[in-house]
Amino acid sequence: MKPFQIYLIDDDEPVREAIKLLLRTYGMTVETFADPATFLAHVDPKRPGCILADLRMPLISGLQMHERLLERGIGWPTIMITGHGDVNACRRAFKAGILDFLTKPVDEQILMDAIQSAFQTLERVLEKEESRELLRSLTEREREVLDMVCRGWATKEIAVALNVSARTIDAHRANIADKLGTSSVADFVQLTSANAELPIGRNT
């Protein structure tokens, strides 16, 4: 698994340092922030990571921070840790798309499991972001042809539907395969459907 960055946001310094030390013993790279505002100011979309944040912090709560990240197109998995494991806060967190909700003091094993799960999610998210980038490289006509291919249409059928020659469609398919790096229809289907499911991307 790729070693991802961990962003730890907690207003309590000893807590921050303790968790950072623990994660470091697992060989993880941890970057700590004392408050959400600082993190929001420093976050780099090109350096994806898993977010570990206290739910309750002055001024901007963990949930608000999460929403602001989404607004900026950053959909990295977020784990909330809180001193109060109340049901309402937990429900609101999951509704907002929080990956996991842990209560303090958090046990090493539970934390590591959540982080592992977050890494996997992040990997998928990044893949989807990648596939979206690939799909975005297609022209409009190529996208049209790809959709028809995914629906299981034959080249001739597509040519008739688009009122072009079959040879033109073949040329499009060659270009598509070239751009997406695969000529497998199964891959195409996975790519497009994954893209449709993406939690983010509506703002592209």
């Binding site: 309590d12 000893p14 807590v15 340092e17 303790a18 968790i19 030390l21 623990l22 470091r24 013993t25 697992y26 840790i81 001193g83 109060h84 303090k104 003091p105 958090v106 046990d107 090493e108 934390l111």
Partner: peptide, 25 residues
């Protein structure tokens, strides 16, 4: 107080677990 106490407890737990791992390293 309960909230307040979770903070040092959290730090204690994580730090101790980290220390254990360090000692075993």
């Amino acid at each position: 107080i309960a909230h307040e106490l979770t903070q040092p407890l959290t730090a204690l737990l994580s730090q101790s677990q980290a220390a254990l791992r360090l000692a075993a390293s």
